[in-house]
């Protein structure tokens, strides 16, 4: 089914566009906006929609989508978990956190848990190095992680 926003959401889209001197500049924020409305991934239909709304070629929009890691090119779980594994966090035990997440969720980094609830990923430095190890769950940061804290967070995600 073709992707489209409601009339009210389209007004929000135009508000985003109005911040910039041209429509192309709204490409990334509008893609985020549409990705959220589309169950957290950017389908071909979303690309076509954004291209039409911003007077861009689909090739341009596709080029943008494939450049940035936060645009999902296929469906993902209901929740997304990113575990930072860059040096400062690694010095504080990021590997143990990631291993534990893989065990608990029954999937490897880059995959979605069998129940479809959580997509697990590794992240590169999330500007939280002083409070590592840390992970991001959807829009929230969890810092100074212990295994027990990870369990509490994952419990909420998988039961909820």
């Amino acid at each position: 089914m073709a992707f489209a926003l409601s009339a009210e959401r389209e007004r929000e889209l135009e508000e985003i566009v109005s911040r910039y001197p041209n429509r192309m500049a709204a490409c990334i924020p509008v893609l985020h906006f549409c990705q959220e409305q589309n169950g957290n991934w950017v389908s071909d239909e979303v690309i076509e929609y954004v291209a039409r709304k911003l007077d861009l070629s689909t090739a341009h929009v596709k080029g943008v989508v494939t450049f940035y890691t936060l645009f999902n090119q296929k469906p993902v779980g209901k929740h997304q978990v990113w575990v930072c594994r860059t040096l400062s966090c690694a010095l504080r035990g990021a590997d143990r956190i990631l291993e534990h997440c893989e065990k608990r969720l029954g999937c490897r980094a880059g995959e979605t848990s069998p129940d479809g609830k959580v997509t697990l990923r590794t992240a590169e430095c999330l500007a939280s190095c002083g409070t590592g190890p840390m992970m991001q769950v959807d829009k929230r940061y969890y810092e100074n992680l212990t295994i027990e804290e990870v369990d509490r967070v994952l419990d909420r995600l998988t039961k909820g």
Partner: peptide, 22 residues
Amino acid sequence: HTGAGAYICGEETALLNSLEGK
């Protein structure tokens, strides 16, 4: 303005391209 996950966008000219929607 928001990025979309790319360390290189911290480099100032990459950041400008990204701001322009590229």
